[in-house]
Simulated scan of single mutants.
Amino acid sequence: MLSRRTVLAGSAALLAGPARAESPPLRFGVIADPQYADAPPNLAMGRYYANSLDKLAAAIEVLNAEDLRFVVTLGDVIDRDFASYERILPLYRKLRHETRFVLGNHDFEVDAAHLGQAVGRLGMPGPYYDFAVQGVRFVVLDGNDVSLFAPPQGDPRWQLAQERLAAAKAAGLPNAKPWNGSLGAAQMAWLERVLAAAQGAGERVVVLNHYPVLPDNPHNLWDSNALVARLARSPQVVAYFNGHNHAGNYGEAHGIHFVNFCGMVDTPDTSAFAVVDITGDRLDIRGYGREPSRALPLRAA
């Protein structure tokens, strides 16, 4: 059984900036890829599925001791089987904070009868949605929208996914993998409206998705370049948070910080999660376990 002490042992201290009295920080928790399953570990991939229950329980104990506005999980709550939600979601209900979810590819590793039920099971308002906290608009994207696993066969998005993957393979792209996905036209149109509204309201924007888009990586969205280009045109976008690549990653472009959080499911007993502070012109990430801490300057909205 993992303890709070075990989880804390691998943490790095928060990189603190100068005190600012004008407003309290916006503080929230981040978890990526618990990927729970009642299954033996995959030693070749370093995935310890069943151990995520103890890791998540220990992380929740730490997060409950913090003054947070919410805790978001960046996809892959489960690894497989719809019944896996029955074991892991009761742990989330022990959080004293508002809980937000993002859909990951493994959340669709279920039988056909349950394929469209992840949104409801996780209590999400929709596969993609947005919410505002303390002047920051959080935009939750669904990178599974056009994929080989989320839409049922025969759905136009499933056919489009076949075409997009074939085109990516023909172009020799490193992310031309069947476990990735992309955004559909309706979601992109919705994103345009949300970004325009955030700019009109003077809100900063943090984008949350399961899939990375930058730096180049085999785990990136198929349409990562198009999405980065669109976000770059909105000066209020300051950060993009994701999971999926369990090793973690970081990149910066157009004044936007692209932070890939490490997967909780990896390793037998070392966890990975974070507490994020947004204060004035700073974004501070206090990492626990395998998650590194970062101090990142924010551009003006």
Rank of each mutant, 00 (worst) to 15 (best):
282 R>T: 00
34 P>G: 09
16 A>W: 08
149 F>M: 03
177 K>E: 08
20 R>P: 11
119 V>T: 15
271 S>I: 06
106 H>D: 04
251 G>F: 03
197 A>M: 09
210 H>D: 02
105 N>K: 15
3 S>R: 07
285 I>W: 01
89 L>I: 14
270 T>G: 00
107 D>N: 05
48 Y>T: 07
212 P>L: 02
140 V>K: 13
179 W>Y: 14
256 I>K: 07
222 W>N: 08
7 V>F: 12
291 E>W: 01
143 G>V: 03
81 D>F: 05
208 L>V: 07
279 T>C: 01
182 S>F: 01
229 A>P: 03
8 L>V: 07
128 Y>W: 11
46 G>I: 04
165 L>C: 10
130 D>V: 10
152 P>T: 01
265 V>Q: 00
258 F>D: 02
92 Y>L: 13
224 S>E: 00
43 L>P: 01
116 G>Y: 14
3 S>A: 10
24 P>H: 11
250 Y>N: 09
179 W>N: 13
260 N>E: 15
51 N>W: 15
257 H>W: 06
190 W>E: 04
103 L>E: 08
138 F>N: 11
9 A>N: 03
244 H>N: 04
277 D>V: 08
55 K>Y: 05
145 D>S: 07
160 L>A: 06
251 G>T: 02
28 F>G: 12
123 G>L: 10
237 V>T: 15
53 L>R: 11
285 I>E: 01
106 H>T: 05
28 F>W: 15
129 Y>A: 09
2 L>K: 08
253 A>P: 10
256 I>C: 12
102 V>F: 09
168 A>F: 03
276 V>P: 06
292 P>A: 05
106 H>P: 05
33 D>M: 09
286 R>V: 01
272 A>H: 03
36 Y>F: 12
83 A>E: 15
144 N>G: 10
219 H>E: 07
245 N>T: 08
129 Y>R: 05
11 S>E: 06
272 A>I: 00
155 D>A: 03
40 P>C: 05
289 G>F: 04
214 L>Q: 03
18 P>M: 13
118 A>H: 06
215 P>A: 13
86 E>W: 12
4 R>M: 12
282 R>K: 01
3 S>G: 13
47 R>H: 06
79 D>N: 15
285 I>C: 02
176 A>S: 00
43 L>V: 04
82 F>N: 14
280 G>R: 00
71 V>A: 12
117 Q>P: 02
31 I>W: 01
251 G>M: 10
262 C>M: 02
116 G>Q: 12
45 M>W: 00
215 P>N: 13
300 A>T: 10
90 P>N: 11
101 F>D: 05
88 I>R: 08
206 V>F: 10
19 A>H: 12
264 M>H: 09
264 M>E: 13
294 R>S: 01
79 D>M: 12
56 L>F: 08
226 A>V: 02
154 G>L: 14
218 P>G: 12
185 A>M: 03
285 I>M: 04
209 N>K: 06
269 D>F: 08
237 V>I: 13
196 A>N: 02
129 Y>D: 11
